[in-house]
Amino acid sequence: MAYTTNGASIEADEEGFLININDWNEDLAGQIAKDEGIALTPEHWEVVNFLREYYAEYQIAPAVRVLTKAIAKKMGPDKGNNKYLYELFPYGPGKQACKIAGLPKPTGCV
């Protein structure tokens, strides 16, 4: 499949994960989120931005636990838990948030 933003066609795999992470931009994130039924709020952006920072350093998405810890640090301890992340990304913070952030899908027994 492919996304079209600002007139450009951007390649994605069968599930909507970007083929090339460098294709990502904020408008595209908004569109991927819309396809997932999510309207991006500043809270969503906190998660998306953290995922992208982490990926830039480690070439992989962070473990869910690492993510919750980082979110707790940034947004307060009451938000640093799985439940909150699932509220933001109902299909799972791991996969859905990664998709919106333009990261490849985590694979394996996860």
Partner: peptide, 11 residues
């Protein structure tokens, strides 16, 4: 399994 480094409740 590498999921033990990543997912809940594996970790």
């Amino acid at each position: 399994p590498s999921a033990d480094f990543f997912a809940e409740p594996h970790i």
